[in-house]
Design a protein around this nucleic acid. Structure first.
Lengths: 169, 169
DNA sequence: GGAACTTACCTGTCCTGGACAGCAAAAAAG
DNA sequence: CTTTTTTGCTGTCCAGGACAGGTAAGTTCC
């Protein structure tokens, strides 16, 4: 990991968010790896532990991902035996995701890892500093969520409606 | 996007970071999509515009990703014609990544998009609130960076050294 | 009842990202 | 000079996130 030299001047807060997010997620991934879980898998399990059996659509909404991603995460957790699916008696389209005993066995470790992650993230900040930081984060989140698409930036003529920069030729 | 109901209580700051990061990145991706760029591609270009020709290893360090990821991004940008590689005269292993005129043509748009992103992120926060938020973000980043792996959480016996939860059986 | 719409899930594909292995060039050690 | 180590890049494998498209089950309305 680099010393994170001084960032670009443009959009300092956005850059800071992006950088913080990356290293934070990296740290989470490292802590989680000892458990054999990948990031997001543990979030799904935590939801199940907290709120009991859930439909995939609900899990997707809570994880902030879409239903397709949720499908795959559930499939992997199911293959690993941490989760089981049972048909929703109320709706034959839906299935309920349930944590198995093997899944429950991870709970303590996962919660410990999250506590550790929080501790490392917070470092030596005082409780009041933590409060301020949390308030800032929530405020920023609110702002971004409030975005219902704003004005557009002009595009260079050459690029209007062009293809995306994608796979190698 | 969901209403992002109240988060889990455990590790409020970590959760807040994770959620903010996701929606912020999503927003960035959406703004960028009109340009045909994917997230990270524009960061690489911005580095080139700011600091001129760079070696991939340096770009990797500055983007916070590794050299393998940088290779792929450079390949795609190169295929799209926004970037060119020329051998480093000082070191025949290395190649210098250079922005082409087509790449330079994106500069204004990309910078506008970042300005827009910053504006949306910041919302109606006052300058002093922004300062506080930025300071918090930087402080958190510092904390996470300072992590040189700490104590370990206990693992459930069943999982010690087990496989990771991976591909479907 | 039957047609049209909506919802829940699944699949395929693309991009990014991390980890690891391999190769070539450069630098360091002998 | 030769051997060893380090550095720079690439390919591959596998993860998640997002999008588009498709199927089956539910719902609404005629």
């Amino acid at each position: 990991m680099n010393p994170t030299a001084e960032a670009l001047p443009g959009g300092p807060i956005s850059h800071a968010i992006a950088r913080l997010a990356r290293i934070h997620q990296l740290l989470a991934g490292r802590l989680l790896r000892d458990l054999g879980l990948h990031p997001s898998q543990e979030l799904l399990l935590m939801r199940l532990w907290e709120s009991g059996p859930q439909r995939q659509a609900d899990l997707a909404a809570e994880l902030g991902t879409d239903s397709a991603g949720t499908t795959r995460i559930v499939q992997r957790l199911e293959a690993a035996g941490y989760v089981r699916r049972k048909p929703d008696p109320k709706d034959r389209r839906a299935s309920l995701v349930v944590s198995t005993p093997a899944g429950d066995a991870l709970r303590e470790s996962v919660e410990c890892i999250w506590a550790q992650l929080e501790e490392l993230t917070v470092g030596d900040m005082s409780p009041s500093e933590q409060e301020v930081a949390l308030a800032s984060l929530l405020r920023l989140e609110e702002n971004v969520l409030a975005t219902e698409e704003g004005s557009r930036c002009g595009l260079p003529a050459a690029r209007r409606g062009g293809p995306t920069v994608s796979k190698r030729a």
